[in-house]
Design a protein around this nucleic acid. Structure first.
Lengths: 231, 231
DNA sequence: TAGATTGTTAATCGATTAACAATC
DNA sequence: TAGATTGTTAATCGATTAACAATC
């Protein structure tokens, strides 16, 4: 539709413009491939990889086709090669410095989560507004005053921020993050954030996930909400 | 397509068969409505509620239309009434007992998360396989041996289980949960679970969320992975 | 009545899936 | 070559959105 920069409407390199649904599955494939590599598997078919990732093989092949042609017909995929290609596509061939703001229970858990480090994310600072938490050691890092945000983001080129504060503080934290130059936010606070265009926000909401389960659970057990009620 | 029980293919009550995308947004609307109630707002338009929920108003109205006609043309929605209707639809008019398995950093955070309790979820037990954690008090509950799962699920009619164990243990925990009668699982372990039909699994994966952000971040900053590379 | 806003329609868009030609 | 499996096509399905008739 829009062509912001004035270039001809050429179809971008084949393999560009990966659909959002596909992007969200690439990390799942990456994890499955890493498990296969660790298990000593050198080659796998789309059927096998799809099974390990919990999707059907047509979807997997379609997804991979957006990246390029990294398989061999009649043979399958070289596990290690495909893993590298996906990691490169996601941008995990270099480390991403990350700051976590809000070092309560959840912030503690996030700071200690080994899955970040092992996947290319490096927690460079833990910030909290409460002075009582300052200098506390969490996951080997000192908790710092929130005011140091701008300094840390600037000197360490932090692009990604994690918000693990109470809901009331989250928008302020987001505003400060954006002002400091952060352009990607992972928000654990149960609130809608408003940010300028160009800043990405992803939200993880524990209670929403449970509510979605409850909705389906309710239907299974036959306790339909309107059962016996009239319209 | 399928008609498992042998009844005529009558269109269910209007308002049934809510699309999955809509179900996932109902908790967001519920939260926005609760905030409006708390702020003293009695009535709101679809435009206002949509703004508070972070969606556009056409989508909001379409979503609500699956539940019924709870608004008034020319006027808007009664905030408290709509909130009740959504809560009823999700199944939050009664409490859901929940067990959490795996009381590490994340399990601690989940056990202490007030958002569960306040939204109709009651943590009835914390279980861990490690005997060193037993009898420890977390969020006012004693950590119990994992073997007590069946007993607790049976006596307390638990339908929802939360897995916060390391990845290697998650499938075993899921199997035991299913055997004990749990039919909805919220999985925080970074692994694909296989469960029988009829059991719902939702997955929360912290590092996947960060990877999705990294993908977009990489494109923003112009460090395209294939930049300069030839096809 | 005039103005406002819902609930619904219909068009569009994006995601999924099965099937199969290409090709190792 | 025969068998296997990818990469792509095309059909289907579901979600989003704008527009507007219904109606308070």
């Amino acid at each position: 539709m829009r062509s912001p920069v004035g270039h001809a409407d050429v179809p971008a390199r084949p393999g560009r413009e990966i659909p959002e649904a596909t992007v969200a599955r690439l990390p799942v494939y990456l994890r499955a491939l890493t498990a296969l590599v660790d298990g000593g598997t050198a080659t796998c078919s789309s059927e096998e990889l799809a099974g390990a990732a919990g999707v059907n093989s047509a979807k997997l092949r379609k997804d991979l086709s957006y990246l390029g042609s990294y398989g061999t017909r009649g043979v399958g995929y070289d596990v290690d090669y495909l893993r590298y290609q996906i990691a490169r596509e996601i941008g995990l061939t270099h480390d991403w410095p990350v700051v976590i703001v809000g070092i309560g229970n959840l912030g503690h858990a996030l700071a200690n989560y080994s899955g970040f480090r092992s996947r290319g994310f490096r927690v460079v600072a833990l910030l909290d507004a409460a002075t009582t938490r300052h200098e506390e050691l969490v996951a080997g890092l000192e908790v710092r005053p929130f005011d140091e945000l701008e300094d840390i983001v600037g000197t360490q080129s932090v692009a990604i921020g994690v918000i693990a504060t109470p809901a009331v503080a989250a928008q302020d934290v987001a505003d400060r993050m954006v002002a400091a130059g952060i352009t990607s936010i992972l928000n654990f606070a149960p609130t809608v954030l408003s940010v300028p265009d160009g800043v990405d926000v992803r939200k993880v909401d524990l209670s929403i996930e449970l509510q979605i389960l409850a909705y389906h659970e309710q239907r299974k057990t036959g306790q339909l909400p309107t059962e016996g009620a009239s319209a």
